[in-house]
Design a protein around this nucleic acid. Structure first.
Lengths: 212, 212, 212, 212
DNA sequence: TCCTAACCGAGACGGTACGTCGCGTCTTAGG
DNA sequence: CCTAAGACGCGACGTACCGTCTCGGTTAGGA
């Protein structure tokens, strides 16, 4: 009987059901009303869970929301990724499902509210980065590297800047809502990012982008 | 002159001092603690103004914050603008003072919180657009048009997209804070936006941008 | 030119019209909503008078109310009083018009609210006594004295107690509202007060009181 | 036993300590400053209780005050009551402890303020009746009935009127404060009420009342 | 006749308390 | 030990009303 390890835990085990119900109720309420208007009591009632249980698993409403959104998106995101042959297609394949998601439900509001929270809470900000920012950038970075290797992009291309251009522009429309996140918009942004660092070998882009 | 306006106002006039003190106290507290942690009572105390007076003129804490930031920025913003000869210089002249401001004080946090508020309040969103988004875009749009007229940019350049690329990327770093808003960053973004729509007549850019 | 006295006052004289309109508006609002629910702004608007003017004449809402009620009652109260021959008739003649007034409009509420105010403000209490309590007692005291002189009441009758019995009982019903202030009630109270101090010479009372 | 009541209550039970501390703090502040000057925040601080908790159990400051006074008086009131042999002694035994209480602390002010509140709020008035008026009248009524049965009072004595005379006179002095609530006063009022309905069989009264 | 000082209506202001709301913690009984 | 139920402390919100204060404009009496 080693005292450090606890092979058999006493008492009632944690309810996975309660956790799932909480996250589900949270994302529903977030989409319905936003983080600010959602109350933890609401979540508890809708999930059929006690408030104390919620706080046993998540330290604050904001972190619950973050977790709920991350879970929601993790489920639907296909991790598999294959080489489409050129950067334009790679980026479109990468960005398209996300944009589709963003257009389906009002996730933008949640993102904005998480972002606001992150401004005053460094720990939260770090978590936000880990769950929402870094994964996307890390998944996209190789696409650019591949394009450089292929000779599509200049060797001195600043990949970080390219990522900022790509995602910054998308976030801009998402958060400010002054224009929609259309398929055409996605193509235009991607074309712009590519042509800003182009070596001139990828003529295909202009043609496709002018289709629609 | 105009018959609709009443030249002689009845009653005690609104205290300009109270208004200014309120806005000043608000922006100070916003920069110090952010919108969420700022209390209207705090503002009242610091401004030497009663809470009732604050609510007489601003319907909510959020609208007060919006007004305070708009006022703060309106003061320091030079409206005069002259043709620098080429788009790159024009855009740099336009964007540089703002970036300098953003680097001086933590305005990003306030922007993020206003943006969050705008997500759930259409009226607030409209006001936010009017005070922060539209002016900047409208002031920048002619610069692009001039560049088209000069032949620097292609005639079919999508100016709205160019604006999104420019401001979106800046906002992205401002809000996510994953990288600083340096002078070099500004130049890179501008170069990228230009080269994405370039006609090839403006060789100057690459040289200057590679200086530093 | 005596500096202490101001024989001829310069400037615009006070507006008697404003004063009257204020008192009138006040009593109307008092009867309609009571002192607590009446606001000074309401009075000002209804009287067509500025709030500053109201506070130039009356130091507080409560004192305005007190003045308004006193004025209302002073107008309708006949000061003439004649000997009716016996105490019973004297008291009835004295009390009847007041009871009639109390039944016509909800003055009881105002009285209760003034009384409440008087509990915590000695100066107000003194004024309340002077305007509402003392006059009535002083006008009633001689009636009892006359009855003693006539031999209707015992020589050692405690007039103050008699006054308390008479007015206390009326006030009780007025303020607690557990029973109405009927004519019959008035007769019964008066009969009780008299018979408590009776010498046995005033047989008339029982008969009349038993009429109805 | 009763199927309607739930034997096992769910959740954290209401804190009896918080309830008692609130009522205690309230009555102290009421006696110290009166209802108007008492603040709910003050009560919360003194009771070591949050304001929200106070409003969770009492809908308004006024109802809290009513409850606090009723509780204060309920504690000190002996419900046991025995036949003293004649009405005079019965009434004195009934009234004396209350008058003693009224003379000890400034309850009159509170009563006046509750009474004022009752004027504009029917529900409050009903509650006031139930807690302060009815119990006392109902406890006193049998004493009069007993006296009628004994032959001390006339068979056609109007008990309600007698109650009004007794309590009305006491309330009058309590609220108007023009004279003190002495033992002698109590005796005089009681004697007056009795002699107003006397059959002439109770000679004892005059003697005792003239003792002091 | 015109000057001027006290008045007036309008309405903004500082202050104080109200009653409400939501977060995150706690205390029960029960599984 | 975990859970549901729900009471609790804390702190901020936005509202209401009081009594005070500035305005521009009005109205007599004295020069």
């Amino acid at each position: 009987m080693t005292p450090t390890t606890v092979p058999t835990q006493k008492g009632r085990p944690r309810s996975a059901k309660a956790q799932q119900a909480t996250l589900q109720a949270t994302i529903e309420l977030l989409l319905d009303r936003g983080l600010h208007s959602m109350t933890v009591d609401d979540v508890a009632v809708r999930a059929g869970v006690s408030k104390a249980t919620i706080y046993r698993w998540w330290p604050s409403k904001e972190l619950l929301a973050l977790d709920a959104l991350a879970t929601e998106w993790a489920v639907a995101t296909p991790s598999a990724e294959r080489d489409m042959g050129n950067l334009r297609r790679d980026l479109l394949a990468r960005v398209r499902p996300w944009l589709r998601q963003l257009n389906e439900k009002p996730y933008g509001r949640i993102i904005a509210e998480l972002l606001a929270e992150a401004q005053s809470d460094a720990a939260f900000a770090a978590l936000y980065q880990d769950r929402f920012v870094k994964p996307r950038r890390e998944a996209t970075r190789p696409l650019f590297q591949r394009a450089i290797d292929r000779g599509e992009l200049a060797a001195d291309t600043d990949i970080e800047l390219a990522l900022d251009l790509l995602y910054g522009t998308i976030y801009h429309r998402l958060l400010h809502g002054h224009a929609p996140l259309t398929e055409r918009f996605a193509q235009q942004v991607i074309d712009a990012v590519i042509s800003a660092n182009s070596t001139g070998q990828n003529d295909e882009q202009a043609e496709i982008s002018s289709q629609r």
